[in-house]
Computed example of a mutant assay.
Amino acid sequence: MRVDVEALSVEVAGARLVREVTLTASSGRLVGLVGPNGSGKSTVLRCVYRALRPSGGTVRVGGDDVHGLTAREGARRLAALPQEVATEFGFTVAEVVAMGRLPHQRAAARTSAADRDACARALGRVGAAHLADRSFLTLSGGEKQRVLIARALAQEPRVLVLDEPTNHLDIAQQLEVLALVRGRATGDVPGGLTVLTALHDLNLAAAYCDELYVIAGGTIVASGAPDDVLTRGLLAEVFGVRAHPVTHPETGAVQLLFDRLPSRPGPT
C-alpha cells in the first residue's frame, strides 16, 4: 500500500520543524529517511503514524488522508514502532504480541483462533516463538525489539513505520532486525509490505534500503537509490564529514568510511 507525504510542514511554538516535505513509499519497498540529529526525521514519521498532526500538507495511505481514517481503519492499514516506546509491560511476550490484534477484534470479543495463529506466525517470523511465555520485563534489548516488531506484524498492516529500529542494539541484532524487515517488505503480503524507516547508521541504510530520502534542516535535500544519494559532496554538506565510498565484497552495496573534514585555517 502506497504512502504519499505531500508538502508536509510542521510548526511548533513558532518554530518550523519540517518544511514542505514530499516523499513516496511504494508497496514492497523499504524506504529510508536519513539525516543529522534534529533534522526532522522523527517529526515526519510521527505525522505518518498519526501521533502528530501537520501544520500543512497531507499524508495519504492507500490514497486516503491518514488523519481522516478512523482509529480502527488506520491501525489496520498501518503499524508503527516509534523511537521512544514504553517497554515496561507487566505482561508475557504472548500477551504483548496479542495487543497487535486489537484493530481486528470487536469490542469485548475473545481472542479467536485466527488471532492466535497470527500471533504465532509473527513470533515465528522474528525468531521469538520460544519467548512466548516469558515476562517481557526479563528480555534483553534485542529480544524486546523483536517482540515489538512481532506485535506490529501481528497487526497485519499494509504499511510499517519504524523510527530508528536499531537503536541500542548490538551489531548482530541490528543486522537481524533489518534483514527481518526487508524480508517482510518482499514477503507474503500481497504486493509487498511498505516499510518507511528512519535510520541513523548510513551504512545500514545503504545496505538495506531500496530508496533514501535525505532530510536536513527540515527539508528534503536529496532522494534516490543509496548509490546515487550517498555522495561525498552531499555527505560533506549535510553531515559535515569526509566520506570514502567502498563496495561491500559480498553484497556489492556501497559502504562508507568516514573521517573529519579538514579544518579551515582561521583568519590571521
Rank of each mutant, 00 (worst) to 15 (best):
T166E: 11
L160I: 05
R232E: 15
L202I: 09
L153V: 03
H200P: 03
F258R: 09
P165A: 08
R182T: 01
P157F: 03
Q255M: 14
H200S: 06
Q174Y: 02
G183M: 05
V161F: 04
Q173G: 05
L175N: 08
I215N: 09
E237I: 01
L160M: 13
N167H: 12
R158M: 03
Q255P: 00
A154I: 05
S223N: 14
R184F: 03
F239R: 06
L160P: 11
H244E: 15
V238H: 08
E237R: 15
A222I: 00
E250K: 10
A152K: 00
H248Q: 03
R184T: 04
V241I: 15
A185L: 07
A172R: 15
A154D: 11
L202D: 08
D210I: 01
P190C: 08
P249G: 02
D228L: 05
R151L: 12
V161W: 02
Q255W: 08
A172C: 01
V161T: 04
D170Q: 04
L196C: 03
N167S: 15
A179N: 14
L256C: 13
P190W: 06
A198W: 00
D227Q: 13
D227K: 11
E164M: 00
V238A: 11
A205K: 02
I171K: 00
E237K: 13
I171M: 09
V214S: 01
L256E: 12
G183S: 02
G183W: 00
A236V: 10
T219K: 13
A243G: 10
G217N: 10
L202M: 11
I220K: 08
A243Q: 12
I220M: 14
L193E: 03
V241T: 11
L196Y: 02
P245V: 06
Q155M: 10
A185M: 06
E211M: 07
P190S: 09
E211S: 12
L257Q: 13
A205L: 07
L199V: 04
V177C: 05
T219P: 00
D163I: 04
T219H: 12
P226C: 08
Y213C: 12
R242V: 07
L193K: 12
I171A: 03
G191T: 07
R232K: 12
D201Q: 13
F258H: 05
T166V: 12
A216Q: 13
P245D: 07
E164L: 03
V159T: 02
E250Y: 06
V246F: 14
Q173C: 05
A253M: 00
F258Y: 14
L160G: 06
L235Y: 00
V189S: 13
T197Q: 04
